[in-house]
Design a protein around this nucleic acid. Sequence first.
DNA 1: CGTACTCTAAATAGTTAGAGTACGGTGCACTATT
Length: 476
Amino acid sequence: MNLEKTLYDAYGFTSFRPGQKEVIEKILGGEDVIALLPTGMGKSMCYQLPAHLLEGSVLIVSPLLSLMQDQVAQLKKMGEKSVTALNSFLDPSERTIVLNNLRNYRFIFISPEMLVQPYIKNKLKDIQISLLVADEAHCISQWGFDFRPDYLRIAEILPALGHPRVLALTATATAKVTEEIKKYLQLTDPFIYSHPMDRKNIVYDCRKFSAGNEKLEWLKEFVKTNGGPGIIYAGTRNKSREIADLLNMDGLRAAFYHGGMEHQDRIFVQQQFQNGELDWVCSTNAFGMGVHIPDIRHVIHFQIPTSIEGYVQEVGRAGRDGSPALATLLYAPGDEEMLESLVLDDLPTINEIRELYNSADGGSQLVAQGIIRETSFRVLSYWRTRLTEQQTIRQIEQQKNEKMMQSAKIKKLITLKTCLREYLMECFDQQLVSKPANCCVNDGIEYSSLQSGPRKEDARTSPATWQKRLESILPC
DNA sequence: CGTACTCTAAATAGTTAGAGTACGGTGCACTATT
């Protein structure tokens, strides 16, 4: 079979990107695959092409509603009509129609929460699924244990679907995350494709201050002399707003973004940024997944993130066009304590575990009574049907240790005297083959070559065709 | 850890200082109400 020809016929591309062909060949050969491909390397093609060659539908588990809607729109734009997303955006009548015609869709997007619903399972078992895709598969490990336990249950659907091939896609995964993906998707002997994660054009900087307001002062000066586009990651929602306000007062085109905002407002900010109408987005870690902006020149962390994985994901949003980009981490004493308590306080307490295991009805009113927190309830309900009380206590204890280790790893980034790039690669169990000339703060940074002027507006906003205007107005 | 808020005692009626405490981030689906 000539895959290149199929690629050209179906999508108009003349050649594959690194890894794509290998991954696709394994899938067509019936193997399970975990593919670690950097963002912008055409991960979605890894399931799009097999969809044209395999009998039946492809089921894609996706973490965010906005991402699903985006992917559906993308495929439709490419001329693919048989695409749908099973999620809460569908009103009940639409949902019934879609569910009764599932076999007519080549691509079905779904959230993990929807996937584990019994009535959805019943509908899916009647159609032929050739491939199950776990998109952004690091979410299994990153969110499954914390607040979206249905991420741990994806594999439950496999028997009902007659055990189709499974493809897990992600940009960043440590050895541990890869292991957890394998375990929770129940992949016995998957083919693992791992592309080197190093991004040569990203320069790593780290700046230490003696107090938080000094960071703010520095940031103000920095954004004045450095054009965007850039993302500024703040530790809290309030901080993201505060920073955006500050930049606005200096006449800069900035907006804030976080999970507490209305859905419409979030889409609006993202689209403005994408259309070149904003230079800076000040946000919590809610911003970024599914954001495709090639020319981001700066990613600034106003506070340290909670893990190396998170840091690398966020930093990886810079410089997708291959031109130099700067990743700046700001630190002031005290930042790490706030970070640790935030992460650790979130885990279920011993008391919550006891209360839930001792409740007769599954503990649903314990939340209403304020005895158990909402997130603890959801996570513990998952473990309760699988582990004894003692095992759960141990499980949570292990998660706590894991969080502490992650925190220690990210904190080391601040005190490190040696090459940051080398250290980051080490965290991902990869060897650094060659160092770029402009590497990181500890190897000396040549800032002059990184300065970007004002954003080239015309390059992004024009040609402002009516299609583009329409796309930006309509939520898709 | 830092911030913002609540509570309380001391003072004598509106206010304030100081102590104590809760909170901070990531999202799906569902339900009830406009």
